[in-house]
Structures are given as C-alpha cells and as structure tokens.
C-alpha cells in the first residue's frame, strides 16, 4: 500500500498543514490484519526525513513556477524511491505530496487522481482563506478542514 505525506507550505517556506496517511484503497480487504486502514506505513527513519524531503523540493518548485503557467506541476522530484508531486496556487502556496512506490507495486499510481486530489485540496484551502480569522501563512488548525481533507484523500488516493 502506498503511503503519502501531504504538506501545505506557505509563502515564507513555513509549514501550514501536514498530513501523513496511506491509501485507503483495498484497505477493507486487508483490515483483517492488525494495521489500521489509512495509517501511514513509512518506516521511522523515513518519517523523520519527510519534512526535509518536501522542503528540499521547494527549489525545484520555484524553478518550475516561472517556466510553466500550470497549477499542477506534476512529478517534480524523487528521493530514494519516494516521489514528490507538487501544485502551486496563484498566491504562491505550495501543496507537496510525497509518496513511496517501492513497496506494494500492485497499486499503480495514477497521476490524474493525484491532480484531482490537489484541485480539491485547493478548493478547501481557498474556503479556509475566506475565513476572516485566518490570515495567509497561518497554520490551519481547523478540525473541520482536517476532516474534509482526509475525506478527499480517501476518495482519490
């Protein structure tokens, strides 16, 4: 099963939101095992590297930001079997998704579903931004946001 690490990074390269999970697909069939469906299965050594991996891709994102005018930048980086996809909004907020493809090769990863995930995450982010008590670059601590994001993660990934 693919594990994912999703982070929203603000304009000052500050973390706005992070979320670790694994694919919910086929999780019901495997729920007989002791693992919790959706819980990320990154090894401990990778886990602590994840924020660094996503932040190290920021340079590449900023290069791509000025060479293409698309929102979805596609797969931009890889790091020891971890792939990094990114999405950037007009307001310079970066959405980064790191995921491993090395274990559990049965699940073919699908670029268009990642894109769709980003688009809906952007939708949620904009709604969050419309809140007068939220300002750009603040951490998103709303439980409601978290729940909705987890639901779209379950839907697409």
């Amino acid at each position: 099963m693919t594990s994912y690490y999703f982070s929203i990074i603000g304009t000052r390269d500050n973390p706005v939101y992070e979320f670790e999970f694994s694919s919910f697909k086929n999780s019901l069939a495997m729920s007989t095992s002791t693992s919790v469906p959706g819980k990320s299965q990154f090894s401990a050594s990778i886990k602590e590297m994840l924020p660094f991996i996503s932040n190290s891709s920021l340079d590449i994102i900023e290069d791509a930001q000025w060479t293409t005018n698309l929102f979805y930048l596609g797969k931009i980086d890889s790091f020891y079997g971890l792939l990094v996809n990114a999405f950037i909004t007009q307001g310079n907020i970066k959405f980064v998704l790191c995921y491993d493809v090395s274990n559990g090769t049965t699940q073919k990863y699908d670029d268009s579903s990642i894109k769709q995930f980003f688009i809906e995450a952007n939708d949620l982010y904009v709604k969050c931004l419309l809140n007068p008590f939220y300002s750009v670059n603040d951490a998103i601590v709303s439980p409601d946001f978290d729940l909705r994001l987890k639901l779209i993660a379950k839907k697409y990934l």
Binding site: Y17, E18, F19, E20, F21, V141
Partner: peptide, 14 residues
C-alpha cells in the same frame, strides 16, 4: 482531527 503545528503530522495521524 485537527492539525497542531507544534506536534506536526503526529497530531492528525490516522
């Protein structure tokens, strides 16, 4: 549910 920036991804893990 709910992300806590001082805990990181641990706070909203599944």
């Amino acid at each position: 549910f709910g992300y806590n920036p001082s805990l990181g991804p641990l706070s909203n893990t599944i």
